[in-house]
Each structure stands twice: as C-alpha cells, then as structure tokens.
Design a protein around this nucleic acid. Structure first.
Lengths: 97, 97
DNA sequence: TTACCTTTGACCAAATTTGGACAAGTATAG
DNA sequence: CTATACTTGTCCAAATTTGGTCAAAGGTAA
C-alpha cells in the first residue's frame, strides 16, 4: 500500500470528501487528488495533521511517505531492486556501528 | 560496498593516484576524494567513463550509484528499513503489471 | 440537464540539491 | 624539513524538485 492509497482509505473510512480533507490540510482539492494518486507527495508536516485527524500512528504514515520517496527514486530503473538490496545491506551494517 | 569504496578499489587496483583519475574524469582531486568517501556523488554520466576505464560492468556501477542515493534518503530515518521493505513490495508488485 | 466529485495538465515561485572549485589542513615517507 | 597524496570546510551558480494553484475535463447519479 502506498501513502496515497492509505490517505484515501482513511478519508473514505471517515466519510469525508476530498474538498473537506483538503480544507483541513489547507490545500486545494486538485492537489489532494494528486496526492491520493501518488502523483504528488504531501509535505512531511502534514502527516502529523493526518495522524491526529484519523487517529493513526504517525510513524506508520511516515514509513509509507518515505517508502514513496524511495520508490520514486527507483521506479524507472532497471537495477532498482538490486539497488534496494544494496542499500538495505548498508543500512543494516551501519546500524551496528 | 558503496560506490565510493568501489571506485577507490578500482583506482587502487589499477595503481592510479586520485589526481590521475580526477584528471580523466575532468574533476578536481578534492572532489574525487569526497566521492570516494561517499560525501559527494559522481554524476551519472561519469559512471560510463569509469566502466570503460576499468573495464567493469556499467550496470554494476549504476546499481551501487543508485543504492547510494537510496541510502542517503533513509540513513537518518528511524523508519528507514521499514520504508525500504515497503518500497520493495511496491517495486515487485508493479513489475508484474 | 444539472450538480457534485474527482482527475488532469499547464504553469510557477521558492526551496533544495547537485556538482563542483579552491585553499587550508592532515598524514606519511624519505 | 619536504614532497606527495589525500581530506575537509566553505562557498557557489545552475539545475532540479517541491508544493502548490487554477481551469478545464471526466464520471456519475438524480
């Protein structure tokens, strides 16, 4: 699940229209639409608002948000998956420092 | 292994000094030093030069180069590893489209 | 039709990143 | 001490990304 999918899910579960949520986030509905379709990313600060609004863990939203950035980096790459593996190794390794 | 480590390895195996390789890449030695220490990234085009110069697979260098970008994105993040996993799922999923 | 949602494309200023240069500092060998 | 090799901090213009807006277009239900 992507961050956009998750946001749409939360919004729909709570019965809101895009326009309503957009207003709470202080953005236009067009922009929110793009966010839900993963064509744009919300800024990080807005994740806090979302977690409070929908009462979900902030860290979960951050994970999805970050994942989106990572995926964006590799989505059109041939070596994308390999690169992910390498990065993972580096992350694991440097954690034990 | 990071892209910087790999470049240093290739350079040393071929007995070059930083200054020499830097000249071939048309950059300063200071910049190359940072590249080898993963403080700066070479631009992508230079990978081609490297692969020809050292006769190694271009795709391998690209994988390491990309991995560096990915790692940069998550290295200071608490949810970094989780995000990597999520991104991996997305990559695998969308490959079968 | 009309009304209401959502999507999409074009555009943009502002913020950030990139890809370096340059000089000074460090390390080591002779 | 000197030379050679490498590292590091500061700075920067140019390129790219971010975070949007707005208007037009698409669906869809009544």
């Amino acid at each position: 699940m992507t961050i956009g999918q998750r946001i749409r899910q939360l919004r729909e579960e709570s019965g809101m229209k895009q326009r309503e949520l957009a207003a709470k986030l202080d953005i236009g509905e067009g922009f929110l639409s793009k966010v839900e379709n993963d064509q744009k990313l919300l800024k990080r600060d807005d994740l806090k608002k979302l977690s409070e609004l929908f009462n979900v863990a902030h860290s979960d939203l951050e994970t999805l948000w970050l994942a989106n950035k990572v995926y964006d980096l590799i989505k059109d790459e041939n070596q994308g998956l390999d690169a992910l593996k390498v990065a993972e190794e580096q992350a694991k390794y440097s954690k034990g420092k």
